[in-house]
Amino acid sequence: MDYTIIVVIEILRAISWLVLLAAGLGIIFGMMRVINFAHGEFLMLGGYTVIMSTKAGVNIWFAMLVLAPLCVGLFGVLVERLVIRFLYGRILDSLLATWGLSLLMIGGVTLIFGNTVEGVSTPLGAVDIGAYSIPAYNFVLIFFAALFMVAIWGVMKFTRAGLIARATMQNPAMAEALGIRTTWVYMATFGIGSAVTGLAGGLLAPLTGVVPTMGVNFVGQSFITVITGGASMIAGTLSASTLLGSISQGMTILTGPVYGDAALLLAALVLLRLLPQGITGRIFTRSL
């Protein structure tokens, strides 16, 4: 019984992990059809923000929840103004440019901070569930993944900003004709997507080794989740994370991490063969 509870929490946490990793990327891809290849490095930047500010004495929660999204969000706006805005509608060029950006970021962070700095321990300690103990921080991840989804849905559905964003997404030319400055919408979207990625990077920092090259460990899972999910930000991210997270964690628990990894890739392959536009290309097509 204890073990069943642990397994359920573990699967929920795996789903949340994918939601957190993919949400920022999903916003940018869903809105603007731009693939940010430096996504892993945006996560890394969020992680470094947390580590460096905690070292300087800042409260870890403030660093994770405020500073990380703020820094990475502003950085995202800068990147959009300097690089991305010249490349809208040119998917391959934007891939190449953001890949170059990722190398630049790895080099820059290595140059400034060196490649080994003491990380931060996971806050909150452990909780006992029967004979098992798990990190209490797991619940933080699950909570924030849920909050992300609800917040994005709420903003898109009920605010004027969300309405403008949806209009731009559906028909940029018509939105422009109605007096919406779409370039600003794109800039804001890229900034918000980056901020969400920064927040995710901040939340991951106490769970993993924060080094300049850490992005590569996350970028694969993030892309697979977004592409499998398809163009809808919320339904796509949520359905793909749930499906892939439970398949890979289920396999990991049953057999081991090697097959867990393989199962995730296999599931993504089969899904994309059957639904080349992603899950939301066929199902939940009208959802956000």
């Binding site: 073990y3 990190p135 797991n138 694969g220 991490p257």
Partner: peptide, 16 residues
Amino acid sequence: EFFPLDVTQFGSTIAK
């Protein structure tokens, strides 16, 4: 247990 090099979450292993 063996772990591919890009595995970053170990919760289920720790439970096992």
